[in-house]
Design a protein around this nucleic acid. Structure first.
Lengths: 205, 205
DNA sequence: AGTAGAATAGACCAACTGGTCTGTTTATTT
DNA sequence: AAATAAACAGACCAGTTGGTCTATTCTACT
């Protein structure tokens, strides 16, 4: 399954798709960049669309693995949730940030039944599940709603960051998340006595 | 400036771009749908990209006009802000909703300097300004931060709605907005007891 | 050493891309 | 009625698209 040529293909394709879009980057560009013959592509993936799907799936795996990695260093699920948004901040301020590929995919393949669109949807579900796992462990009420809200906020941050290319959206998103968490927490207890005395140290990146 | 042919062209192009994407819909499709000669397009717009820009600008005008319309029926700026999210809910549940065109544009034109990308960015700014006007009139503190947060939440709702095609994202967004407003309000009422003062200090758009 | 499978280059394909040019017809204005 | 401008159909363009096919070379296992 995993050959070096296949890997090169996936990496180059991913980079080109990210920076120049799916439709605008032709197959030949990818082949040239990867230094690979055309038949290698078609033997491994079958079609351009399936290459795209493979790229999206791998990107999804990478991102979730990375997020779970950064999150695993934090013990409290509350901190873990906020950690996700810190990770976003780091991502946005990286030199070569050019937007979330899944949002691009969903935009470039408007047919919801198309394979790339479905791959993107799958990624969103995985991300929501990740949040759900954390909100559940944090024992907040309405964990489901809260999880999809957090996912939505993250999407909004992604979307805005693509436009303004600052880490600000991630900081804003983190603040909102903090407020939602605090609320979901205090609502669970007595309204006048929030359990989390918040003076969370703010990231200074 | 406004000829009937030009209008047909804009309308058909908009519909096709919305439903099938910018790159995938060829000029000939648009011309056929609009029943218009090729030279009419090039005389009026100069190029496909400029047609796209014209479509985006008109869509931006339409949307802002519509939003300002629905908002003008509400007297309280607080209600007006929430009214925006109600409008989103209505949009998402409409039969032919297929996602926000500006997000699609920004995804299909990754070069931030390209005309369509700039048009999309302009729209985001107008929307943020609309929010800012309302948060200012509501006399909430940190109106700027709040406005860009609201715009970001709206983006997130748009983005999520494109994926799951329900009005749920708008409802969630509205709830979040409500919470933020409530908070920005109570902070105003007790300025001597600011919640998380470092958090607000950081923000600069 | 021999052989099977992977990878190669590159010719080739029909379809389509955005865009130009021409010559004619239709409306509008004077 | 004449003149001006807009819109027309459609031929035409070079370049590109995703994809196929062939014939050859490389590489790894038995």
């Amino acid at each position: 399954m995993a050959s070096p040529k296949r890997d090169r293909l996936l990496n180059c394709a991913r980079h080109l798709f990210e920076t120049e879009g799916f439709h605008t980057t032709g197959i030949d560009r990818i082949l040239e960049e990867a230094g690979v013959a055309k038949m290698t592509l078609y033997n491994n993936f079958g079609s351009k669309d399936m290459l795209i799907v493979a790229v999206l799936n791998r990107a999804s795996d990478d991102m979730l693995q990375k997020l779970e990695g950064t999150v695993s260093h934090l013990n409290d699920p509350y901190e873990q949730i906020l950690g996700i948004f810190d990770a976003l901040a780091g991502w946005y301020s990286s030199e070569d940030f050019c937007g979330c590929m899944f949002q691009a995919a969903v935009a470039e393949f408007p047919d919801p039944e198309s394979e790339p669109a479905m791959a993107a949807r799958r990624h969103l579900m995985r991300l929501t599940e990740l949040f759900l796992d954390m909100t559940r462990r944090a024992e907040l009420n309405d964990a489901e709603t809260l999880a999809s809200m957090l996912a939505m906020i993250a999407s909004g941050a992604n979307c805005t960051a693509r436009q303004i290319r600052t880490q600000t959206p991630a900081l804003h998103a983190r603040q909102i998340a903090e407020i939602l968490l605090e609320r979901a927490c205090s609502r669970r207890l007595s309204p006048d006595n929030p359990i989390r005395p918040q003076a969370t140290k703010l990231q200074t990146l």
